[in-house]
Amino acid sequence: MTLLSFMVTLLSPEPLSDCRRPDVSKTTIAEFEELVLLAALRLGDRAYGLSITNEILSIAQRPAVRASVYVTLRRLEKRGLIETWHEAPEDAPHGKPRRFVKVLPQALALLRDSRLSMQRMWSGIEDVLEDVQ
């Protein structure tokens, strides 16, 4: 068995695990990732770690831990969903460059998918939700 899987690994262009099950993490985005991406889109060319944290806090009214935002940004960049670059902003208090964030088209596609599936799930249950309220 070990030998067999070893040979398969050698022959296979992708790692073994990827052959067996599709990696869900590549085709969907987690809720917090979605929040970060949406915040970045809303902020446009003023999107960076601190402003994204504040945007989630003020618009979504969710407590966002700064460290989580940064970890998520790094992960999104690794997945090729955002692009970051350093630039010194004009109003920089210390004159040091910031890392700005730009949402890439792949992310937009995922966000669109996510919104669509959510809308489908939401449709038809408005009555129920009103009852609950």
Binding site: V65, R66, A67, R75
Partner: peptide, 26 residues
């Protein structure tokens, strides 16, 4: 804040490392 950064990046790194290549099933 420092503690949160250290912890969250630690677990992110750990999960990245464990999911990276070269890990066979057994």
């Amino acid at each position: 804040q420092i503690a949160q950064f250290v912890m969250r990046f630690f677990f992110a790194n750990l999960s990245d490392a464990l999911n990276s290549g070269g890990v066979s099933r057994n």
